[in-house]
């Protein structure tokens, strides 16, 4: 699932042009599940924009199944025609699809898209996949070193981990290679540790290990 977080509303308001009619468009898939752009968020956003001292005539809220599928745009064609701009509460893919489909309309992104990840509990999301296009999970026992190792090392740990925790953040981040080792041991596949991986394409490097999104207000 794609994990996203709403931009601070002040930032959104700054970006909004002074238009007669604004459409706030939510997406009922990933961003609803990660509590960032579903029907409820659309309603809250609409109210907030209406209340903010902004020269916008009318704010309408709407939400479609997926903003990354053209077919769903048919049902909103009429609404979009009437509005002057769209505030999209979808991931980057949705925003781009919208601007492609409705070429004449200005589409403003309402979310910051973070990562592909899993829902670990109420209000806690964890990055699980980098989308690197070159999956090696079969060798590493289902744990991705590119995401789970803070340094993205491909051939075993750096040597800085202690008690299974990463030296970059010894309290919260686990050492990815420690996890891989433990998993491989369980699978009886420790010989995989000896397989040599070709160097990674560092041009698409990311920083700081698995990115986490912690939302205090949702957590139990």
């Amino acid at each position: 699932m794609i994990v996203a977080e709403q931009k601070p509303i002040g930032e959104i308001l700054k970006k909004l042009p002074e238009v007669e009619k604004l459409l706030v468009l939510g997406c009922d898939t990933c961003v609803t599940v990660c509590l960032a752009g579903g029907e409820k968020e659309v309603k809250v956003m609409c109210s907030a924009i209406r209340m903010a001292d902004k020269k916008i005539g009318e704010v309408t809220g709407f939400s479609i199944e997926r903003q990354c599928d053209r077919e769903f745009f048919k049902e909103i064609e009429a609404v979009v025609k009437e509005s002057d701009a769209i505030l999209s509460l979808a991931c980057g893919a949705g925003v781009q699809m919208l601007s492609d489909y409705f070429e004449g309309k200005l589409v403003i992104p309402g979310l910051n898209t973070h990562f592909i990840g899993s829902n670990e509990g109420a209000g806690y999301w964890l990055e699980r996949c980098l989308g690197c296009g070159d999956c090696m999970l079969d060798i590493t026992g289902g744990i991705c070193p590119k995401t789970r190792c803070s340094k993205g090392l491909m051939n075993g740990p750096c040597g800085g981990s202690e008690n299974g925790m990463c030296e970059i953040d010894p309290l919260n981040t686990e050492c990815g290679w420690y996890l891989i080792y433990e998993r491989l041991k369980k699978l009886n596949m420790l010989q995989n540790m000896m397989t040599n991986q070709p160097p990674r394409d560092w041009s698409r490097a990311h920083d700081g290990g698995p990115r986490k999104l912690l939302r205090e207000d949702i957590q139990p």
């Binding site: 601070p8 509303i9 002040g10 308001l13 809250v44 907030a48 924009i49 209340m51 903010a52 001292d53």
Partner: peptide
């Protein structure tokens, strides 16, 4: 927080 961000 949302409200104060929105200038209200």
């Amino acid at each position: 927080k949302l409200l104060s961000d929105a200038g209200i």
